[in-house]
Write a protein that binds this DNA or RNA. Structure first.
Length: 138
DNA sequence: CGTGAGCGT
């Protein structure tokens, strides 16, 4: 019976294909749960700039980053008690490309003697409490 | 005189 030998032939081809590491290597299953892609954060126009010196103010930071794009906002967190800056701030750019360029260019560089640590800012919005449009109580 | 990792009103 030639049909039987043909089936065994195909079965052998299938088994070899399964055992083939190059064939199995393409069978990777990706689950789209929540892979903590810390290395690829979604780039925003907002940059988190840390590693700042305690003598750095917003205008110095803006002047340092205004060379890479249009800085729309520069915010440095200051300590209300000691009055000294916490050494980290946020730089808002007009475009994500500018922010990415500035990050790639200024990250690791030094400003006022201290190396800068730049990363994309988390969209942490505070305030702006959800105001519920209340209908006239009548 | 030193301080230092980090995510904000």
């Amino acid at each position: 019976m030639k049909k039987n030998s043909l089936i065994r032939f195909i079965a052998r081809r299938v088994s070899t294909a399964v055992d083939n590491p190059v064939s199995t290597s393409t069978w990777r299953f990706y689950c789209s749960h929540s892979p903590p892609s810390s290395s690829s954060p979604p780039p925003n126009s907002k940059l988190f700039v840390a590693g700042l010196s305690w003598s750095v103010d917003e205008k110095s930071l803006k002047d340092a980053f205004s060379s890479f794009g249009n800085v729309s906002e520069v915010r440095i967190m200051y300590d209300k008690d000691t009055g000294r800056s916490r050494g980290f701030g946020f730089v808002h750019f007009s475009k994500e490309d500018e922010a990415r360029c500035a990050k790639d260019a200024m990250d690791g560089k030094a400003l006022l003697g201290r190396p800068l640590r730049i990363s994309f800012a988390l969209e942490k919005v505070r305030g702006a409490p959800v105001v519920v449009p209340r209908l006239p109580s009548t």
